[in-house]
């Protein structure tokens, strides 16, 4: 069974936000209206964390793209009362929107604030295939989050099965990795020793958020800076 993981090279990443938009477009993530966005309800599955540190002129601005980390021991699935979020055998932490009752316990439990919530019914044009028809449109009151574009995995699997071959490295990539102009996001099967992700995840530059929490995130960051 493959285990999907992501490596983000922060030394290559410039923080251009292309991943955030690619993700929003791919996954039909709604746009919050201005007042809502300003009050902290803008929805990003792939968020860009920006912090400025250090005193002038030795300023350092860290820009870190943050998807869901798809932890191997996810704290969010543990607390879901209805099993609307769970970790599938391939290590994807999935969100089943129609099971979700909107208690937001998973959001409170996620140490990385990776989940977003539909505070209002998002506006879609009735019946029109707005955006990506491969991804469902969510409704008011459910939690959603980065899915590693699992719908792409499903279609890749279908093709691979039809052609009777294993999934190749780089065949299944989420929208963010695909659109990154800096090629900073690499995606693949971390259990496959031939894969780029496997190689990169063993780099001396690697770090993960929340490693001390023991949740085993599957998003690895590469950075020459000692602390990211």
């Amino acid at each position: 069974m493959p285990k999907w993981a992501m490596v983000i090279d922060l030394d290559k990443c410039t923080g251009c936000d292309a991943c955030a938009v690619a993700c929003k477009m791919e996954n039909n993530v709604p746009i919050a209206d201005p007042a809502e966005a300003q009050s902290g309800r803008a929805m990003f599955w792939m968020d860009m964390m920006t912090t400025t540190e250090g005193a002038f002129p030795n300023t350092v601005t860290k820009r870190v793209p943050k998807p869901c980390f798809h932890c191997d021991d996810p704290p969010c699935t543990l607390v879901c009362p209805v099993g609307a979020t769970y970790r599938n055998p391939e290590g994807l932490v999935a969100q089943i929107y129609h099971r979700c009752i909107g208690c937001r316990y998973c959001m409170a439990a996620c140490p990385f604030t990776a989940k977003v919530y539909n505070w209002y019914d998002p506006k879609w044009i009735d019946g029109a295939e707005v955006g990506n028809p491969d991804v469902s449109r969510r409704m008011v009151g459910v939690v959603e989050k980065c899915s590693f574009c699992s719908h792409r995995l499903m279609s890749v699997k279908e093709t691979a099965h039809r052609e009777d071959r294993p999934i190749m490295d780089g065949e299944y990539v989420p929208a963010c990795a695909e659109s990154c102009p800096a090629e900073a996001i690499v995606f693949g099967d971390i259990e496959n020793e031939e894969s780029r992700v496997y190689r990169l995840s063993r780099s001396y530059r690697v770090m993960r958020y929340g490693e001390d929490l023991g949740v085993k995130p599957k998003v690895y960051y590469l950075s020459r800076r000692t602390e990211t």
Binding site: D121, P122, K123, W124, I125, G127, V130
Partner: peptide, 17 residues
């Protein structure tokens, strides 16, 4: 709540979809 008519898609396309 949310944006009104985010997009304007021709009716023919909606049918097609």
């Amino acid at each position: 709540c949310g944006l009104d008519d985010v997009l304007d898609i021709p009716q023919s396309m909606i049918e097609q979809a």
